[in-house]
Design a protein around this nucleic acid. Structure first.
Length: 556
RNA sequence: GCCCCAGUAGCUCAGCGGAUAGAGCAUCUGCCUUCUAAGCAGUCGGCCACAGGUUCGAUUCCUGUCUGGGGCGCCA
């Protein structure tokens, strides 16, 4: 699809040069970047540039005078029909009708690609998200991570990146041992043995259930082997089950990973040793107080970080070093995005320092932080704790609220802003819910098209669509690529939710103002044109919903 | 004490240095014999937390203050 923006910016540049050569504008430095914006008020125009205001000081002329001069020198454009210099000094522009309808035709000729932009140019990016400890079911707090990560991945795919989704399975370390101990106790209890729960064990009911389930399948065999062996084996078996549950929970939200990466594998295949040796060679490791430290202070970070504890076991940072060495060096991703809750925010500088220590450009790693979600039920904040078992699981919420609503709600806010997720509200909101508003618009387009199954509208002439509602709808539709670009550039998928509502709104207004399927004689041409528009709009709505990971129902 | 995020309509929140600051919900008022009323139209509602600064121009950038959340472990 032709980029109107690029064409216009180039033309403004040309106009400026011509005006200067003609002596109508004084010589002066040109702006590095030509600003182009979409007026908030759609009646002002489709695009506008405040360039004259920025040039006013450099050229020592009134903005409006510069704007008028530039308009006179603008070359003829494929995308723009009229230019107008107005009030403070804006140049407002309106799309050429033919260009606009061509964009709509383009949607119909490549439906599955509508909204795609070439930003990534085939570069590879790994998005690692959720990665919650596999010691219990996912709780609702993980959902924001899941939605953010998966939607960023979808947006980046649409923006031309080669994307891989990954879940980092923390299957090494002390928590996993504790998990095994807990499961051993629950397993033994299920067999009537009076086993004691470890002091810091996982108290949730799911451990009890898992203990019983393993008894049902495997009998007493773990009681008959050596205890430490049984704890290890049960831990591994329990982990396998929890990971399987996590996988199916996320699948319920349409989230599928390319890879489930084992933390423990980093220590078995030599990755850890290799990565640590690089830091050692660089002189970034230091032994003191019985532990091995990474000298983040060598990179201007205020605190060092423990790599190997004084008891000889590697800490989580040791794994992070090896894991990111694997991501960047062994697998060679151009970019990596780690999605983290804001409670881990303090570690970001040390992650970048560590990459520098490994000789990797830290700019290749983006740590996408999101503020934590507080969960409300009946107006009260619900505390979350895996240890006490007082949790609300993602699965519960999904069955109560549904994947589409969970995704939309969690996506609709900037990751940087805190949010309350009110369970009662999410459940109650059925018809007043923006989720249904958008999906209903899609269902409505399908409904219209069902009424026209006998009509061949392939030759419909979009030039006939001159009603304001038709014009507005077309303009909203072709904005999707801009939204994708914005969301991909800033890693801000929440823009999609606002766009979706605006697009749906335009469709509903069109439905009110313009009768589509009309069987009266003499209306064939306009009916065909409108059907074509509706068909294209259905694609735009469906693509938007798909980008948000939501379903696009044909009937509601 | 130091670091990070936020403070915009009654509520939940958008707003990439530019025009009269927007949406949904809530309030109030209209609109279904015609392609789905899960819809549409209208109404009410704002010292953009506060104080300075930079700028032709600040809700947006900078500094400080206040308020809320998160962090400052040989936890992850």
């Amino acid at each position: 699809m032709v980029s109107a923006d690029a064409e216009i910016k180039a033309a403004l540049h040309t106009a400026l040069q011509h005006a200067q050569q003609a002596g109508e504008l004084p010589a002066g430095e040109l702006l590095a970047e030509i600003p182009l914006e979409r007026p908030k008020d759609e009646t002002l125009g489709d695009l506008a540039t405040p360039i004259s205001m920025q040039l006013a000081r450099i050229l020592r002329l009134a903005p409006i005078q510069i704007a008028e001069t530039l308009v006179r020198h603008m070359p003829v454009l494929e995308s723009i029909a009229e230019l107008q210099a107005v009030r403070p000094g804006y140049i407002n522009m309106r799309y050429r009708a033919e260009w606009l309808t061509n964009q709509i035709e383009a949607i119909l000729s490549a439906p599955e690609h509508f909204g795609e932009v070439s930003l990534g140019e085939g570069r590879s990016v790994q998005v690692e998200f959720v990665s919650a400890n596999p010691t219990g079911p996912l709780h609702i707090g993980a959902a924001r991570n899941a939605v953010l990560g998966d939607t960023v991945a979808r947006v980046l795919e649409a923006a031309g990146y080669r994307v891989e989704r990954e879940y980092y399975v923390n299957d090494a370390g002390s928590r996993v041992r504790m998990f095994g101990e807990t499961l051993y106790a629950r397993y033994a209890q299920a067999l009537g043995v009076d086993a004691e729960m470890p002091a810091d064990g996982y108290m949730g009911a799911y451990m009890v259930e898992m203990g019983s389930a393993i008894v049902a399948e495997a009998g007493r065999q773990y009681l008959e082997m050596e205890r430490s062996q049984a704890v290890a084996d049960l831990g591994r078996e329990g982990l396998r089950r929890v990971v399987a549950d996590i996988e199916s929970d996320l699948a319920l939200m349409g989230i599928h990973y390319n890879r489930w990466f084992s933390e423990a594998s980093l220590y078995h295949d030599g990755t850890y040793d290799t990565a640590i040796a690089i830091l050692e060679r660089g002189g970034y490791l230091e032994q003191h107080d019985g532990a091995l430290w990474f000298k983040a202070s060598a990179f201007g970070v205020n605190k060092d970080e423990v790599v190997v504890r004084s008891d000889g076991t590697p800490g989580y940072f040791a794994s992070d070093i090896a894991y990111h060495y694997d991501k960047f060096v062994l697998r060679g991703f151009d970019r990596v995005i780690d999605v983290w809750g804001a409670d881990h925010q303090g570690h970001v500088p040390r992650m970048h320092a560590m990459l520098q220590g490994l000789g990797i450009d830290p700019q290749r790693l983006t740590i996408l932080l999101y503020q934590l979600v507080t969960l409300k039920r009946s107006g009260e904040i619900v505390r979350l704790s895996k240890r006490t078992g007082d949790i609300i699981t993602l699965r519960e919420v999904l069955s109560e609220v549904g994947s589409d609503a969970v995704r939309f709600f969690l996506l609709a806010r900037d990751a940087n802003s805190q949010m309350d997720f009110d369970l009662d509200l999410a459940k109650e909101q059925s018809d007043a819910n923006p989720v249904f508003y958008v999906q209903y618009a899609h269902a409505r387009t399908c409904s219209i098209l069902r009424h026209a199954t006998d009509i061949d509208y392939s030759a419909g002439d979009l030039a006939l669509l001159t009603e304001p509602a038709e014009q507005t709808l077309m303009r909203r539709m072709i904005r999707l690529p801009d939204v994708v670009r914005l969301a991909a550039q800033n890693l801000e998928p929440h823009h999609l939710t606002y766009y979706a509502q605006e697009l749906a709104s335009a469709l509903h207004a069109f439905y009110r103002d313009c009768r589509v399927v009309n069987l009266e004689p003499g209306t064939e041409a306009i009916t065909a044109a409108r059907l074509k528009l509706v068909a294209a709009c259905r694609i735009a709505l469906a693509r938007t919903l798909v980008l948000m990971g939501m379903s696009a129902p044909e009937v509601m």
